[in-house]
Design a protein around this nucleic acid. Sequence first.
RNA 1: CGGAGAGUAACUCAGUCUGGUAGAGUGCCUGCUUUGGGAGCAGGACGUCGCAGGUUCGAAUCCUGUCUCUCCGACCA
Length: 570
Amino acid sequence: MRWSNLLIPTLKETPQDAEIISHQLMLRAGLIRRLGSGLYTYLPLGYKALRKVEAIVREEMNRAGAQEILMPAMHPREIWDRSGRYESLKNVMFRVKDRQDREMVLGPTHEEIVTDLVSREITSYKQLPCNFYQIQTKFRDEIRPRFGLMRCKEFIMKDAYSFDVSSEAADESYKKMYDAYVRIFKRCGLHAMAVEADTGDMGGSSSHEFMIPCDAGEDAILEADDGSYAANLERAEGICDLSNEFPGADAALKKVATPNVGKIEDVAKLLKIEPRQLVKTLIYVADEKPVAVLLPGDRDVNEIKLHKLLPGAELADPEVIRQVTGADVGFAGPVGLTIPMIADRSLKGLRGGVVGGNETGVHLLNFDLERDSELRNFEDIAFPKVGDLAPNGKGRLTEKRGVEVGHVFKLGTKYTEALGANFLDEHGKSHPAVMGCYGIGVSRTLQAVIEQSNDKFGIIWPVSVAPFEVLITVLSPKDEACMRHAEEIREFLEEKGLDVLVDDREERPGFKFKDADLLGLPLRVTIGERGLAKGEIEIKERSEKDFEAVSVEEAAEKAYERILKMRELL
RNA sequence: CGGAGAGUAACUCAGUCUGGUAGAGUGCCUGCUUUGGGAGCAGGACGUCGCAGGUUCGAAUCCUGUCUCUCCGACCA
C-alpha cells in the first residue's frame, strides 16, 4: 500500500481534549477521529490495527472451541424485562422506539439474547457444552465517556457465552476462556494481569478481570507484594495486623469536649492522635431500620461488601442520625447505642480508642470495645489499605492502577432460569444450563496497547497488532531507482504475507522520519539516493535506536527475518 | 445530575475586561529555492466568532436563553 493512497492525517500538535498519551497518539498518528463525546471513527490505520486485534481474539476463541455468531445490536424491550435487567440497567441502555411505538434498546451486552437463542435450540445434554461468541458493537450510555476509546458510548466488544450441564463442567469452560484470555493479551504484546473482581450487576459467583497496569487506568488494583494475590479494590480483602492497643488502654472512659469538630481528621488534629485511633461510626438505614456501621477512622466503607450483609443499605439522613444518636452528624459512637451495630473486623480488640459521645461536641477517650460496648458483630466491610496483609496471609498489599480489558464471569443459572434455557439430562430430567460469560473490550485493548507501548516520538507497535508490519520510507520518490527498489521489497514482503506501507510522499526526509516514528510501525526500511549510491539500504526497528545498513540485494530478506524474530517474541 | 472551564480558520490559540472593518502560528494551495530528523522566500484560499433572542447608530465583545465539548465528582457488566 502506498501512503499517498491512504488517509493518514498525522498531527504535529497535540489535540487539546486528549488527556492520556494513548489517546493523544491515536489522534496524532491519524488512527481515529472524534464525532461526538464517546463516539469515534476508525480511520484506515486505526481500523487495520483494530482488525488485527480482532483476528487474534477470533483465532484464540476458535481454538478454545467457541463458535462465532452475530446477534442483533437492537433488541425488543421485552427480552430485557424477562431477566429484570430492563430496570437494573436502565441508566446504561439507550432506548429507542420504532415507528409503531414499539420499545427497543441498543444492546449494552447480550446475555439475554444468547440465552434466548439457547433456550430454543439447545434442548439436550448431548448438545452441551457449547460456547457462542461474537465481535460486535455495544452501546452504553456512559455518564462520562473519556480517554478516547477507553470509555465510549459505542465500542467494540468480543463477548462469549458458555453453557454447561453442571457447575463443575462450567468451571472447565471458565478455565478454557481464562487460558484463552491469557494467550490473547500476550499475543497482543500486552502485560495483562488477572485479578479477582466483583460480579456487580451481572450476578454470578465469581469473576476475574484482566487488567493492563498503567497510571491512566480507571480501576484500582491491590496486589500482594509477593505476587500471590491480586484483586480489584472493590473486591479486595486485606488483614490489618496493626496493634489495636493505644495509650490510655487501661484508663476509664472519659468525656472530652470537641466542639465543632465532627470530622475524623479534625478530631484527630484537635486531640493530637492518629485517625486510626478514632472509631468512625456511620448510621445506615437498611429495610427502613437504622444500623450503626463502625470502622477505624482511617478506613472507608466498601458499600459493595456492606450490601452483601445489608441489602439496599444507604447512609442515613441527618434527621435520622439525630434521632438515633441524640447528636448532630459527626458525634455518633457505639457507647449506649441501642440500634444493631456492625464493626469492621479490624476493630477487634480495640482498647484506648476514641469514639463519638452521642452528644454534640463530645467524644469519649479510652474506649475499650469489650468493656464499654455491646459490639460483638465483626465483619469485613472496609476497603483494605496499602500495607495490609493479603488475605492469604502472605505478602503485603500494594496498590496500582489498571485498565480493564477483559472480564470473565461464572454466572450460574441466573439467566438460563429467567429465560428458560433448560436441557434434558440422560434421565430425561430438565435442568437450567449453567452459564458463563466472557468479555473483551476490543477497541479498548487496542488503545491499551498504545498506552503501554510508546515513547516521546510516538507509538511503538507490537508486530502482532501493527497496522502494517513494515514501512518503506522512500526518501526520493521521484528517483526511479529508489521507487523500483521500494516496490521490489514491498512485493517480496507482501508475498510472505506481510502488510507493507510505502511512504512515497514528496516530503523532506526529516518530515517523513518524524511521521514514521509517530506511526510506530515495527520495522522501517529506508531507501535514499545517498544509500543506493553505496549499494545500501537501511533497516531499523522502531524499538531500537540504531539502523543497520544492508546491501540492496539482501534488504528484503533481512527485513523479513527481523519481522520473524519479532513475532517469535510474542 | 452537582461543581469548574471552554466554544473565534482544518489544528493550537490571541482578541472579549474597556462595543467601532476578523487576527497570529501551524496546516492547506501556487511558484522558486532546498533535500538524511517536522526547511526558506514570495504569493494565495479558508470564518454566519456554537446557536437563538435582546440592548445599541454599531455586538466576537454587554444581557438572557439554549446547545455542544472538556475536567472533577456522583454513576457504571
